[in-house]
């Protein structure tokens, strides 16, 4: 079941094209990563989902029907550029933003009490935002984002500007929100957080979607059939045993009398065949498939795209 979908969304600004024909499908209950280099159009897409700007063409769907303006009350948004009213007191500010998202005063109060207790910041209630440290302000910002218990949460670069402790806290909160049934979209260029958190991703570059799908499926799709084999025995024998279908990329002595080899297998064979070839001759200590990290895929895809673009311009020129 899709919670949110965008179909063929395009958006141009006065001087440049921010999005062209972007589609994305966000399954309910997923943590969805929106990746891409700076200036790719991520923030524009997030603003369109938040109805801050309208797309030139394309459609948005929420809970399987067309998105309506009232739906913004079911979305929580934490923009990349964090901001609060500096002169306003913490308590009043939380109530104000809660009510702006459609909560009544009483409900807002109850939920604020819960979050304020959870983060142990009750003593800040009457402090002005400008009196708080940046980390403290981030916590207030987070509460404002989740206060109205939205079904869809959108974080734009959530980990930028957080110190490691707060970043970890945020990560745990995001996972906890998903546990409670929320769907989360976040944009980032921090790939380790993608591998850790995301089920699905969309990679945008230069206003276009390059790849979309489940993280594991994408990594599988990009795997290069390379296996890491740890073994004990005569390392010189390895190359003799393996025929032309296999290629030993490199080999190192990982421990005394133990070696680690990276072996690429070609299409016709399988990992089982490789293993059966090796077993009679060596004592195998480990056997794992090398799956590329999101970081490698990201760099690979973005570079490939840029090469295509430069080739095209070369041909046309």
């Amino acid at each position: 079941m899709e919670l949110f979908a965008a179909r063929n969304v395009s958006k141009s600004f006065v001087n440049h094209k921010a999005l062209s024909g972007v589609s994305m499908h966000v399954p309910a209950g997923s943590i969805y990563g929106l990746l891409g280099p700076n200036g790719a159009g991520k923030t524009t897409l997030l603003r369109i989902i938040n109805q801050i700007t309208a797309p030139d063409t394309g459609e948005l769907f929420f809970h399987g029907r067309r998105m309506q303006s009232a739906d913004i009350n079911q979305i929580g948004y934490m923009p990349e550029e964090r901001g609060l009213y500096k002169k306003m007191k913490v308590g009043e500010q939380l109530i104000y933003f809660g009510r702006l998202k459609g909560l009544d005063k009483k409900t807002a109060m109850e939920r604020i009490k819960f979050w304020v207790g959870k983060f142990e910041i009750r003593s800040w209630w009457n402090k002005k935002i400008e009196e708080l440290s940046k980390g403290m302000q981030q916590k207030i910002q987070f509460i404002i984002t989740v206060l109205h218990e939205p079904g869809l949460l959108i974080f734009d670069e959530p980990f930028s500007g957080f110190d490691p402790i707060n970043a970890n806290m945020l990560k745990n909160e995001i996972l906890a929100l998903r546990e409670r049934g929320a769907t989360i979209i976040f944009s980032t260029h921090n790939m380790s957080s993608v591998e850790e958190l995301c089920d699905h991703i969309t990679l945008i570059d230069n206003s276009k979607v390059i790849i979309e799908g489940e993280v594991n499926a994408i990594r599988q799709q990009f795997k290069l059939d390379i296996y890491r084999v740890g073994f004990q025995g005569d390392e010189k024998k390895l190359r003799q045993i393996l025929g032309g279908e296999y290629e030993v990329l490199d080999m190192v002595e990982s421990k005394p009398s133990e070696h680690l080899a990276r072996i690429k297998i070609h299409r016709q064979t399988t990992d089982n065949m490789l293993l059966s070839l090796l077993l009679p001759h060596f004592h195998i200590t480990s056997f794992t498939e090398e799956i590329p990290g999101m970081n490698d895929i990201f760099i690979d895809l973005v570079n490939r795209k840029q090469e295509e673009v430069s080739q095209q311009t070369y041909q046309h020129g």
């Binding site: 801050i52 913004i72 964090r82 609060l84 404002i144």
Partner: peptide, 17 residues
Amino acid sequence: IEEKSSRVIEILVSSVR
């Protein structure tokens, strides 16, 4: 200008038009 420079504007416009 205050809302713009403190960047609170983006949260505001994600709640109201």
